[in-house]
Amino acid sequence: MKIIQIMPAVDWYFKHDATVWHVAAFGLSDEGKIYGMVGAGDDGTLKTVPVMTKGSYLHRLQLTEEEIQAADKKR
């Protein structure tokens, strides 16, 4: 799989169990699938959220203030 296009994901988050991650961008793959991309590691690279990860993409308005603050600290 190769990401061929990246689009900003303003105010979008990925919630998995009790953990919330800020989604920096959505990526379109060469297979036509869309993936959420989150910051991973100290090198600033973006990684796709693994397809098998159970969770939901949620807009900022769908989260509690505590979830938003916890997610934004991970940036």
Rank of each mutant, 00 (worst) to 15 (best):
M1Y: 10
K2M: 05
K2N: 10
I3H: 07
I3M: 03
I4K: 06
I4V: 05
Q5V: 06
Q5D: 10
I6R: 15
M7N: 04
M7I: 00
M7E: 03
V10P: 05
D11M: 01
D11L: 00
Y13E: 10
K15M: 06
K15E: 07
H16R: 15
H16K: 15
H16I: 13
H16V: 13
A18T: 08
T19W: 08
V20N: 10
W21K: 03
W21T: 01
W21E: 01
H22G: 07
H22M: 12
A24T: 11
A24M: 12
A24W: 13
A24K: 15
A24P: 01
A25Y: 08
A25R: 10
F26V: 00
G27S: 07
G27H: 08
L28S: 08
S29C: 11
S29I: 05
E31S: 14
G32Y: 03
G32S: 10
K33G: 07
K33Y: 05
I34S: 06
I34K: 07
I34E: 05
I34M: 06
Y35K: 13
G36M: 02
M37Y: 03
M37A: 03
V38N: 07
V38E: 05
G39R: 14
G39H: 11
A40V: 05
A40D: 01
A40S: 03
G41Y: 10
G41D: 01
D42P: 05
D43V: 09
D43W: 11
D43S: 09
G44K: 04
G44E: 02
T45V: 06
T45R: 13
L46Y: 02
L46A: 06
L46W: 02
L46I: 05
K47W: 15
K47N: 15
V49E: 14
V51F: 15
V51L: 14
V51Q: 15
M52C: 01
T53Y: 10
K54H: 12
G55Y: 04
H59M: 04
H59R: 12
H59G: 02
Q62D: 13
L63F: 07
L63D: 06
T64L: 06
E65S: 09
E66L: 08
E67N: 02
I68A: 03
Q69A: 11
Q69R: 13
A70F: 05
A70P: 02
D72N: 14
D72S: 10
K73H: 01
K73D: 00
K73N: 00
K73E: 00
R75V: 03
